[in-house]
């Protein structure tokens, strides 16, 4: 009897785990823009992202959880060291709450590719992704005024758990 119960328990666990799978989506060409000039303090750069789930053939109804696994920012050559003190990255859509998903403070010097610290708690990203369009918002804290237009390129990797 004990053996049967143990086996049944094992099979249930196996099937419930088997039903979930994790897919990674990489967005390697997220271009965050804002028109200059930029002044000392926080400046916001945006990029709209369209139809991510649809493009990757993922049905939003099958999605259990979405988390940002990594976020890398590529600094343009026009930026000198020490110009930007910190970054924070948010996701927002018209019908869901804005979520802060990553940041870095201070920015390490001498690097062109900056890996942001990803938030441990990321509730509600599903809702943002389920819309056809959402916005990535990058707040960059400038240490001084800067005239030249800048565009940041971001590489974002999301892990999507589906059933």
């Amino acid at each position: 009897m004990k053996k049967i119960l143990f086996l049944s328990f094992f099979v249930i666990i196996l099937f419930s785990c088997k039903n979930q799978s994790v897919t990674s989506i990489e967005l390697n060409d997220v271009n965050l823009t804002a028109e200059g000039p930029y002044f000392e303090g926080p400046n916001s750069f945006q990029s709209k992202i369209l139809n991510t789930l649809k493009i990757n053939n993922i049905n939003p109804e099958n999605v259990d959880k979405i988390v940002l696994a990594s976020a890398i920012l590529i600094l343009p050559d026009s930026i000198e060291a020490g110009l930007i003190q910190d970054f924070s990255l948010q996701l927002v859509s018209n019908s869901s709450e804005m979520k802060k998903v990553a940041f870095i403070n201070p920015i390490p010097t001498g690097k062109k590719e900056i890996e942001l610290t990803v938030a441990q708690e990321q509730e509600g990203i599903n809702e943002i992704f389920s819309k056809e369009e959402f916005t990535t918002l990058l707040d960059a804290n400038f240490s001084k005024d800067f005239e030249t237009n800048i565009q940041f390129k971001a590489k974002l990797k999301f892990n999507i758990t589906t059933h």
Binding site: G41, D86, S88, F103, N105, T117, A119, Q120, E121
Partner: peptide
């Protein structure tokens, strides 16, 4: 409450 976000600057 998220320990990983405790170094985000308040300005901005």
């Amino acid at each position: 409450p998220d320990a990983s976000m405790q170094n985000v600057p308040l300005k901005g």
